[in-house]
Design a protein around this nucleic acid. Structure first.
Ligand code: FES
Ligand code: FES
Lengths: 154, 154
DNA sequence: CAAATAAAAGATATTAAGGTCTTCTATACT
DNA sequence: AGTATAGAAGACCTTAATATCTTTTATTTG
């Protein structure tokens, strides 16, 4: 039998894990208390070794920071906190998600638009613009705000 | 070595092919002149047998029509022309693209939003509503209009 | 310096997406 | 009816994404 039901998502699983991990680091770590891959994997329900590789990728690209040895782990430096979300997507899923044609045509421009160009581009560019101006730090602030709002006292 | 650069696109390749094929059928076929999978594969630069499977999937789901035998091929019935784009995406890539959380969390709702929910949902839903109200016929009309506009006489 | 710890690195395995090939079946035309 | 045509169906293969496991390296602490 043939499946052909790809259950495609906008971001790869690696990228989803990366974003969730970065948010976790931002929330749970500080300069004094680092957060380990082990703990992170358990809390976020992500395969440990797979997560490790993703974290290494982010670390190599200076989007997060890490130290080895006992009490080692991952954390965000001042610079890391200013990293924007689009950078994380770019490093893990590659560029192209926000520039490639949705129909996979070799180029995407309003000069040579595919039938879906007009419909898609607004969505794509809008989100891209937001993510390009959204830092890791800001993202966690938003989250905390939302949590506060949702815990409405009766 | 490890790649970890997934080049993720919003739609699967199968789905991109499906959409391009449907547009092609809408433009090139009529009730008198059907369009064959062979010809379509060559024109659109899509692997023939792979395209066939996709067309069969669409045909089984009544999104396009076909007849076998000599001078057979694919075409759009009156009903097919009223099929909306979101249906094609749904049949090939499954539901979920427009309902699932971008970070892959088990549910997506404003009651339990992920950190990116607010950013993502507006655009996602916006595109979804457009595609839900965009028929195959309308899509080709838009394309023809764009072509006319771009061929500006000097 | 020795032991313990935790990330880095990379080899290997599994699964799903993407792609190819062969056989079968319906239709048209002579 | 017989043959050619073109889609339908399904087996099979390849590649890339995802996941696991093992070894190495850096760092802390006693
Ligand atoms: S050309 Fe297809 S989305 Fe721009
Ligand atoms: S909860 Fe993540 S996008 Fe809605």
């Amino acid at each position: 039998m043939l499946t052909l039901q790809s259950e495609s998502h906008m971001l790869s699983k690696s990228c989803q894990y990366a974003l969730r991990a970065v948010v976790y680091i931002a929330e749970e770590s500080s300069t004094t208390q680092l957060v380990g891959a082990q703990q992170m994997a358990e809390s976020l329900q992500i395969p440990k070794h797979f997560l490790s590789k993703i974290l290494q990728q982010l670390s190599r690209n200076k989007l997060i920071s890490s130290t080895k040895g006992p009490n080692g782990g991952f954390y965000l430096s001042r610079e890391n906190e200013q990293v924007t979300i689009d950078r994380i997507i770019e490093v893990i899923d590659g560029p192209g998600l926000f520039t490639a044609c949705v129909l996979g045509l070799p180029s995407c421009s309003s000069a040579h638009p595919c039938p879906l160009h007009e419909q898609a581009v607004g969505y794509r560019d809008g989100l891209y613009h937001k993510l390009k101006n959204l830092t890791i730090r800001e993202l966690t602030l938003v989250t905390r705000l939302e949590k506060k709002e949702s815990s409405t006292p009766k």
